[in-house]
Computed example of a mutant assay.
Amino acid sequence: MLFINKLEGSFSVTNVLSRRKILNYLGLCRRAGFIISGSELLIKALLKKQLFLVVIASDASPKTTKEIKKHIVDKIFIINQLSSSEISQAIGQERKVLGVTDQGIAQQIRKIIEGGE
């Protein structure tokens, strides 16, 4: 599983437990209302600098991936190796791209990725 931070290189997490924790956090974000999903809404939120984490499904189209990455100008963590079925199962909706608007949860996910939790 590869995770990319636009400004700080890349990280690799192969631990199944860590992957499950990340998906659980995404589900929590959905229930708490901290998820913005769909390409158009995500781009609007990126332009307003409302996002702290972006998740792009590994099976998202290259056009979608390019369009989203084009609008990322700040230091935003990108997770790009979860499948759309994993994302959909975690949040209860079928989505290929989503963003997390809560800084605290985004930091917790980043800690998991970096091996701090």
Score class of each variant (00 low, 15 high):
residue 64 T to A: 14
residue 36 I to D: 04
residue 39 S to Q: 14
residue 30 R to G: 04
residue 14 T to R: 12
residue 15 N to E: 02
residue 22 I to Q: 02
residue 9 G to Y: 03
residue 17 L to N: 00
residue 32 A to V: 08
residue 32 A to Y: 05
residue 57 A to G: 14
residue 26 L to C: 06
residue 32 A to K: 14
residue 44 K to Q: 13
residue 12 S to K: 12
residue 32 A to L: 15
residue 37 S to M: 14
residue 7 L to P: 06
residue 40 E to G: 09
residue 45 A to K: 08
residue 56 I to V: 15
residue 23 L to T: 00
residue 41 L to Y: 13
residue 28 L to G: 06
residue 30 R to D: 05
residue 63 K to S: 11
residue 57 A to M: 10
residue 41 L to G: 07
residue 28 L to D: 10
residue 64 T to L: 15
residue 56 I to F: 14
residue 40 E to F: 11
residue 21 K to D: 15
residue 30 R to P: 01
residue 8 E to P: 03
residue 43 I to S: 04
residue 14 T to V: 09
residue 35 I to K: 05
residue 39 S to V: 15
residue 33 G to A: 05
residue 67 E to L: 15
residue 44 K to W: 05
residue 20 R to W: 06
residue 38 G to Y: 01
residue 14 T to I: 09
residue 62 P to S: 10
residue 9 G to A: 11
residue 49 K to V: 02
residue 68 I to C: 07
residue 41 L to S: 12
residue 58 S to D: 08
residue 52 F to L: 06
residue 62 P to D: 15
residue 38 G to S: 04
residue 23 L to I: 01
residue 45 A to T: 02
residue 36 I to R: 07
residue 27 G to A: 04
residue 61 S to N: 07
residue 61 S to W: 08
residue 9 G to W: 03
residue 33 G to H: 03
residue 46 L to E: 08
residue 67 E to G: 07
residue 64 T to D: 12
residue 8 E to S: 13
residue 37 S to I: 09
residue 20 R to C: 01
residue 19 R to H: 09
residue 37 S to R: 15
residue 12 S to F: 13
residue 53 L to D: 06
residue 48 K to I: 02
residue 18 S to C: 11
residue 31 R to S: 14
residue 57 A to I: 10
residue 62 P to I: 09
residue 42 L to F: 07
residue 40 E to T: 14
residue 60 A to L: 06
residue 21 K to V: 08
residue 23 L to N: 00
residue 66 K to M: 12
residue 26 L to D: 00
residue 54 V to Q: 03
residue 24 N to R: 03
residue 57 A to H: 08
residue 48 K to M: 06
residue 50 Q to R: 15
residue 30 R to F: 06
residue 29 C to D: 09
residue 15 N to H: 02
residue 42 L to R: 01
residue 34 F to H: 14
residue 20 R to I: 10
residue 14 T to Q: 13
residue 21 K to G: 03
residue 51 L to H: 00
residue 19 R to Y: 00
residue 45 A to V: 05
residue 11 F to T: 10
residue 23 L to C: 01
residue 25 Y to L: 10
residue 19 R to T: 04
residue 10 S to M: 12
residue 65 T to F: 13
residue 56 I to C: 11
residue 15 N to M: 01
residue 28 L to C: 03
residue 12 S to H: 11
residue 54 V to T: 02
residue 35 I to Y: 07
residue 66 K to Q: 14
residue 11 F to E: 12
residue 49 K to N: 12
residue 34 F to L: 05
residue 49 K to I: 01
residue 19 R to A: 01
residue 59 D to Q: 06
residue 21 K to R: 15
residue 58 S to I: 07
residue 67 E to Y: 15
residue 40 E to H: 10
residue 45 A to E: 08
residue 48 K to G: 02
residue 49 K to C: 07
residue 15 N to Q: 08
residue 51 L to A: 05
residue 65 T to L: 12
residue 45 A to M: 10
residue 24 N to V: 04
residue 12 S to P: 02
residue 58 S to Y: 06
residue 40 E to S: 15
residue 41 L to T: 02
residue 63 K to E: 12
residue 51 L to I: 07
residue 33 G to Y: 05
residue 17 L to Y: 04
residue 23 L to V: 00
residue 57 A to W: 06
residue 24 N to F: 03
residue 48 K to N: 10
residue 25 Y to G: 02
residue 56 I to G: 11
residue 62 P to E: 15
residue 37 S to G: 13
residue 16 V to N: 00
residue 54 V to W: 04
residue 40 E to P: 08
residue 48 K to S: 08
residue 26 L to A: 07
residue 18 S to Q: 09
residue 36 I to N: 08
residue 40 E to Q: 12
residue 22 I to C: 04
residue 28 L to R: 12
residue 34 F to E: 09
